[in-house]
Design a protein around this nucleic acid. Structure first.
Length: 418
DNA sequence: TCTGGGGTCCTAGGACCC
DNA sequence: TCTGGGGTCCTAGGACCC
């Protein structure tokens, strides 16, 4: 294989920029990006954390994931706006369309605000990839109103590392010969796939920079980081052979829905109702994907932030809301010891196609269930999620649909590896 | 402490079978 | 059984990403 040229394109402070652009378009005179501001959840419903910060907010030391209280302590004048996920989906798609339509057929969406682009076959058209990257960057800024960073290199890992260098509105390269000067001096935490636990283990062994890791003995790193050690050692040395793959229909491995409940749940019935609300969206997405699932799992987080989960393999794969809900409730009853519950989750996985005539082996009731689910799905598709819901939710204090406010339409998913 | 939600992958331990 | 070893499956938990 010849030398490839890979771009990584990353929207700067994506949620915040996108909300800022929308506000400007609605006649607002203040550009949120120019002042300390964040996109954050609502503390009233116990969702009060920082999702994205503006660059001026970053200067106050505000970090993604911290509570709004902490952020406000650092900057009392901080402007806080709520997230708007359907807006973000639109921006994400418009962003990807420009890349795909104008620059290369080989584009991979990596997350809601990141794309990889294989520029290799475009070289003859543009000659200079750096100039082409500036063209892309400027076109997105001029047409969509938000800035991006573009990283350029010979593989995805290096391109991604390059796009993180200096922000916003920049093009950077980390070609292999630039690794020692541009990547090795960076703190170890900056390396892709080195999170809190890994950096702690590395730092305790005096590995402080990416260069330190690159020069360490890979066998020694494997002793305490197992296979993950070899992965990050390769990344520190700029080694990555993964390909940019067009993502039509990514292979989904699991579908889940979880939520922090605005109040502590202390009784079984309410818990079961929350599980139903979570299962409704999980099962509908499962059916829309055309799958049946063989594994159901339930997770709990208590008011004291203790987490645990319980799962079960089932004999025949299912996609019915009621069937999944029933198993989720059984799992919950086996798992719950009576502590006040802060957070609940339902997840299904181990999929197989749902189009087979296996229906005949189900009991009559089950066939009816599937017909009912299909009907409800299509009503909700036409008239909205709230158009039909179970009477058990009335006056229960539990919303009929909760968790991932995602407008859906196929949420772009990344794998944890490149 | 006003501490989110969506994912993927890996590992360890126990059950079970030969 | 105070027995050994290896393979596979299952479950729970933890690590990482955005």
């Amino acid at each position: 294989m010849g030398k490839r040229i890979i771009f990584h394109i990353d929207a700067n402070s994506a949620y915040l920029s996108w909300s800022a652009v929308a506000k400007l378009q609605h006649g607002d005179s203040l550009d949120l990006r120019t002042v300390p501001s964040i996109v954050g959840g609502n503390p009233e419903t116990r969702h009060g954390i920082v999702l994205t910060k503006s660059i001026p907010a970053k200067k106050y030391g505000i970090q993604t994931g911290e509570t709004l209280r902490e952020a406000l302590n650092k900057c009392p004048d901080l402007i806080i706006v709520p997230p708007d996920y359907s807006l973000y989906m639109q921006c994400s798609i418009a962003f990807g369309d420009i890349l795909l339509r104008e620059f290369s057929p080989l584009v991979e969406q990596y997350s809601i605000d990141e794309y990889f682009l294989d520029f290799t076959s475009m070289e003859r058209l543009y000659v200079d990839p750096i100039k082409a990257a500036h063209t892309i960057k400027d076109k997105i800024r001029d047409e969509l109103g938000f800035t991006v960073n573009i990283g350029i290199s010979t593989n995805k890992l290096l391109a991604k590392m390059a796009s993180e260098l200096q922000k916003p509105d920049k093009v950077h390269t980390i070609f292999p010969e630039e690794i020692p000067t541009k990547m090795w001096p960076l703190p170890i935490e900056e390396l892709f796939m080195v999170g809190r636990a890994t950096s702690k283990k590395l730092r305790s062994r005096n590995i402080k920079t990416i260069g330190d890791l690159a020069h360490a003995d890979p066998a020694w790193v494997q002793l305490f980081l197992k296979s993950h050690g070899l992965l990050v050692w390769n990344y520190a040395n700029g080694q990555d052979i993964s390909l940019v793959r067009e993502n039509r229909r990514p292979i989904i491995k699991g579908i889940g829905n979880s939520t922090t409940i605005p109040f502590d749940v202390e009784d079984r019935n309410t818990a079961h109702l929350v599980l139903l609300s979570l299962t409704e969206t999980v099962a509908a997405r499962l059916r829309q994907a055309g799958y049946c699932a063989r594994l159901v799992s339930v997770s709990i987080k208590t008011s004291e932030f203790y987490s645990c989960s319980h799962q079960r393999k089932i004999a025949s794969a299912i996609d019915c809301t009621n069937a999944i809900h029933q198993i989720a409730c059984e799992l919950f009853d086996e798992l719950w010891k009576g502590e006040p519950i802060r957070h609940l989750g339902v997840r299904v996985s181990e999929f197989c196609q749902n189009d087979f005539q296996q229906l005949s082996i189900f009991e009559k009731d089950y066939v009816k269930e599937r017909v009912l689910d299909k009907t409800v799905d299509s009503i909700r598709a036409r008239f909205g999620n709230g158009s039909v819901f179970r009477s058990s939710f009335i006056n229960s204090g539990v919303r009929f649909s909760c968790g991932g406010t995602m407008n859906d339409e196929e949420y772009p998913m990344m794998s944890s590896l490149l």
